[in-house]
Amino acid sequence: MTDWYRRKTWTKTDEEEFFAKLGRARKDGRAQYLKIQAIELIYTKEKKLVNVAEELLNKVLREYPENRIEKSPCYNFLGQIYELRNDAEMAICFYKKSLDYEKEFPNVITSSYLDFSKIVIQEGKTESYNEVEKILIEKIENESISFPVQNYIMYSILAIISEFKGNSEQARSFAEIAEKNSKAEKNSLWNPRKQKIGIVENRINWLDKLVGRK
C-alpha cells in the first residue's frame, strides 16, 4: 500500500485525505511530508501535478521557515520544476538559493551543485563559468566522491570550461578522468552490495558532445 504522502495523483479526494493526515501528523514531520509528496508529483512530469508540487514546496518555505533541514531541498526541487518548464533563469535562481543556504547550513547537501553547473553549461552562460569551476573544484577537493556518475559529470564540465579558457591540456586531462568514470563498473564504497550505486547507466549526450566525444 502506498504511503499517504507518496501519491501519484491529486484529485479532490487525494488533496483532502492528504491534508487531513498531515494535520494529524507530528508537527516536526509535516514539512518533510509536504516535500516528499511534492517530489512524487514532480516525478510524474505532468503539468498540473507539477504545479501542485510547486504549491506544496512553497508551503514548506512559507509555513515552516524554522525548518532548516528542508529549506535547501525545497529550493532544489523548485529549480527542477522550472527546468521542466524550460525556464532556465528561474531554475538557476533556485539552484543558487539552494547553494547559498547550504553555505549557511551545510548539514544538508543537495544535488544543486551539479544541477546548477549542468544548466549553466547547457545554456552556454559563460559569465558563470568561473563560479561553476570554483564550486566543482571545491567539491572535489573537500569531499570524497564515491559515485562515478558524479565524477563523470563534474570532470566533463571542468573539461568544457578549461577548453573555453584555452587550457587544452587541462581539458584533455579532465575529459580522460570523466571518461574513466563513465566506464566504471562500481563505486568506491566498501559494501559489495552497494558498489553498483551511482555508476553511469545512461550517458548525457549533450554533455558528451560539448566535451568533444564521438
Rank of each mutant, 00 (worst) to 15 (best):
K186M: 14
E185A: 07
V200T: 09
K134Y: 12
L78C: 01
P73T: 11
E138P: 14
K194L: 15
E55A: 07
I137A: 07
I121N: 01
Y33P: 01
L34F: 07
Y82F: 13
N51D: 15
I140H: 02
E46Q: 14
S173N: 13
K134M: 08
N58R: 02
L207K: 00
F164G: 05
A53V: 02
P106R: 05
F147E: 15
Q122M: 08
Q122K: 13
E185H: 08
S117Q: 06
A171Q: 08
W4M: 10
L57A: 07
E17D: 12
Y43F: 10
N76D: 10
N167D: 15
Y113R: 04
N142R: 14
R203S: 12
R68D: 13
L158M: 14
R62T: 09
K21L: 11
K48D: 15
N51L: 13
E141D: 10
S111E: 13
I39M: 07
F77H: 14
K214H: 12
N51T: 13
P73F: 04
I204T: 08
I92A: 04
M154P: 00
L136C: 05
W190A: 15
I109T: 15
R26V: 10
E185Q: 12
E102S: 03
E89R: 09
L56W: 00
N181T: 01
S144P: 01
E102R: 03
K196D: 07
E201K: 11
E17V: 00
K209S: 06
N205C: 01
E66P: 01
L210R: 11
R213L: 09
F94Y: 15
R30N: 03
K59S: 02
S168E: 14
M90G: 00
R26T: 07
I160L: 08
N191I: 11
E54P: 05
E55Q: 14
E55Y: 03
A88T: 09
I204E: 08
L84H: 14
S128D: 09
L136V: 12
L57N: 03
K183W: 01
L41H: 03
E102L: 09
E127G: 11
K96A: 13
V50W: 03
F94I: 11
